[in-house]
């Protein structure tokens, strides 16, 4: 059998899980944990992987210096990378499936830029730290609503959502440039820093923020997943099979937008992860239905963790993480476009 099937007596609960997907999820989780520990070893002060686990799990005598680097400096950054990556990975999968287009992502739908614009405005008006993050979340949600309303015409069609998203991205991008030119030098630098996307400043606050976001929103996404598998069949079949179409679009887009907003609030906009992770996940599991949405989450987590390792350690100068994801993501994006155009799937 390829599935575990669970049914209670009376069948008030009946579930089916693909064994292969469970195994893949377990492997990805393991890879993530190992990569995170590896990430923590790296740096000017080298710590062995045994020492990393020792410090995390309180094995043996505490070494204050190691504890400081592991717990105060590197662990929060690695965790933020993994959590933000995971949030972008699963949210990206939701966007692609709602919009029925493998090129859809919060970047392309304008949601990332919306969050950045609001964060930039916050910095411009002197709101820093948590306030900037709050503005970013608000910006992503508001942008999602604006895009949805502008695309709405007897229901929001996927193509219109993308077109409006591209327009909003351009317009809001212009808004950010305007703020940069109007702000004084220090603020302009802060805005630019924020809008590049970086994990350099992540601490436990960021970890907590994104962890809670995932803890609450991922179960909601899994709860709504069955609607995604109907939306994919096109509006007519979806409704025929009993889908409340508008409610479903709104619930799914809202959940994914809030998740993206919270992730961006912690790290600044990080491009391409939400676009690439679902593709990589599909490459392994074929389709992202059911629990396979989590495969996209893990891929996003691993992708951002690795990108952040490269950003910190592999180049002579430290570069923003967003630059690395773009350097990996952009060629991959072009590859997807090329392949899609060749098979006529895009």
């Amino acid at each position: 059998m390829k599935h575990f099937i669970y049914r209670n007596a009376g069948e008030t609960v009946s579930m089916r899980f693909s064994k292969a997907k469970l195994v893949i999820l377990a492997i990805l989780l393991l890879v993530l944990v190992v990569m995170a520990a590896f990430a923590i070893t790296l740096g000017d002060f080298y710590i062995t992987i045994v020492e990393v686990y020792g410090s995390l799990l309180h094995l043996g005598d505490a070494n204050k210096r190691i504890d400081f680097f592991v717990r105060k400096m590197r662990l929060p950054r690695a965790l933020t990378a993994a959590l933000v990556g995971g949030a972008l990975g699963i949210a990206g999968a939701v966007f692609q499936r709602v919009v029925r287009n493998p090129l859809a992502s919060p970047d392309i739908l304008g949601i990332t830029t919306g969050a950045s614009l609001f964060a930039a405005a916050a910095i411009f008006f002197g709101f820093f730290g948590w306030a900037t993050s709050l503005f970013a979340v608000f910006g992503s949600m508001l942008t999602a609503i604006i895009v949805y309303l502008l695309a709405y015409k007897k229901g929001a069609s996927p193509v219109r959502l993308i077109l409006v998203g591209v327009g909003i991205t351009a317009a809001f991008g212009g808004g950010i440039s305007y703020i940069v030119t109007r702000a004084d030098e220090n603020l302009a630098v802060m805005v630019l820093q924020w809008t590049t996307g970086s994990l350099a400043l992540s601490g436990w606050d960021e970890v907590l923020l994104v962890f809670l976001a995932l803890l609450i929103l991922v179960p909601i996404i899994l709860f709504l997943e069955r609607r995604l598998s109907l939306i994919e069949l096109g509006d007519d079949l979806a409704v025929t099979l009993g889908l409340k179409r508008e409610t479903s679009y709104i619930l799914l887009l809202a959940t994914a937008s809030i998740l993206v907003g919270l992730a961006i609030a912690a790290s600044g906009p990080i491009g391409f992860v939400a676009l690439i992770a679902p593709h990589a996940a599909r490459g392994i599991v074929g389709r992202l239905n059911g629990g396979a949405m989590l495969v996209s989450m893990f891929f996003g987590a691993i992708l951002l963790l690795v990108s952040d390792m490269v950003a910190q350690h592999d180049l002579n100068i430290s570069v923003p993480t967003g630059a690395i994801t773009a350097a990996i993501g952009a060629p991959y994006f072009l590859f997807i476009l090329y392949r899609g155009a060749k098979n006529g799937t895009i």
């Binding site: 099937i5 049914r7 069948e11 008030t12 609960v13 009946s14 579930m15 089916r16 709860f223 069955r226 598998s229 109907l230 069949l233 099979l241 009993g242 889908l243």
Partner: peptide, 16 residues
């Protein structure tokens, strides 16, 4: 299997 959607719910996803 997706044809079963109207007969399913969050907890009843794969009945006999």
């Amino acid at each position: 299997s997706r044809g079963r959607a109207p007969h399913q719910s969050i907890f009843q996803q794969w009945s006999k």
